[in-house]
Design a protein around this nucleic acid. Sequence first.
DNA 1: GGCGGGTCGTGACATCTGTCATGCCGGAGC
DNA 2: GCTCCGGCATGACAGATGTCACGACCCGCC
Lengths: 210, 210
Amino acid sequence: MGSVSPVTAPIRLLLADDQALVRGALATLLGLEADLEVVAQVGSGDEVVASAREHAVDVALLDVEMPGTDGIQAAAALRAAVPACRVLIVTTFGRPGYLRRALDAGASGFVVKDTPADRLADAVRRVHAGLRVVDPELAVESLAVGTSPLTDRERSVLLEASRGGTVADVARATHLSEGTVRNYLSAAIGKTSARTRAEAVRIAQDNGWL
Amino acid sequence: MGSVSPVTAPIRLLLADDQALVRGALATLLGLEADLEVVAQVGSGDEVVASAREHAVDVALLDVEMPGTDGIQAAAALRAAVPACRVLIVTTFGRPGYLRRALDAGASGFVVKDTPADRLADAVRRVHAGLRVVDPELAVESLAVGTSPLTDRERSVLLEASRGGTVADVARATHLSEGTVRNYLSAAIGKTSARTRAEAVRIAQDNGWL
DNA sequence: GGCGGGTCGTGACATCTGTCATGCCGGAGC
DNA sequence: GCTCCGGCATGACAGATGTCACGACCCGCC
């Protein structure tokens, strides 16, 4: 007893990713580290909070793109429900808006999926130690792009329009007048410096504003 | 010598995926299997053929979504250059058109990334043994959807239009008359049973026709 | 109280889109 | 030979879209 360097308990991890293959592969990868232990895996954002609580998770690795509750919403819910649990967002797309929203939601780290595999474990350790982990390049871009210029309605109308329907479709879906929809779309097109509705959709998506 | 059950040489694998994190994780996952060995990893389709030749690869696992040469084009090139090397497509999206094109390109297997991780190694072994590996559900869907109804020009015009530009933009990019572009778009809209250009884009993308 | 900003609506206008008819050319197939 | 089909184009037309001006309401803020 009282050894000079006691064996610390491993960091308990939760993995949330809708793609079972990558989820499993990441679990294997992280499980090889002596000080890390994957104690839970889920395939949707809705299961995150319950699972994190049940398994006394230290760090949750959340993908952004998931069906239902996405990783960012899940991060917010998780921070509220289990404040001791840190969140590391692991995502495919390094969209500026994602980063900002992730940090707002209380995430401690943000890693894109094309970073080298051997850095992931370090990111987890840093997050667990209370540090922030953010790709500096992405942080710069995020600052440059700034926060979304779209109001809530503009965003929701543009989101509906991104499905490809006509103005009439969008109006029906949002319970708005057709004229109003066109006004909001016009505003969104202007604010995104686009020249078409479709282009506005693309720009907003690229920036993570949808 | 002449032992009853000789140790067979491990199956030599190539991994191609633009996301380093999943690539590395998959490598770790597969490397744990005694009869599998990851001998090469690349991050783009252009490097596949050279790398496969250099490392005497038995089975190549290719992602479809990659910058530059995509996994399906790479599969075709690889089959032509190194016929002994089998191809297993590992992709995020189970789009019917992807499957068909992958098989046409000479792929032996097609696995979506939301299949359980423990099945991947089996898929690799089967492919190596000369068997076909295809998700039966996806095969059915692929048959139901059928092959792309779009002609080459319709496809390329729709692809250009998917970037969100106006008819004039597309006409400029494709060196066609504006009227012709509108004709092709109209045809594409009709063939996809869409009611808008944007919807036609969405449908074509979902089916893997772009 | 006044001001700004977001929300929702109307009406009018110029332009863009989607559709259709029609034509010409070239190649594949009978 | 002829026909069918795809590529390419033009012209015309109805309807959709994007823009602008304008007004109404509510809320927060100085």
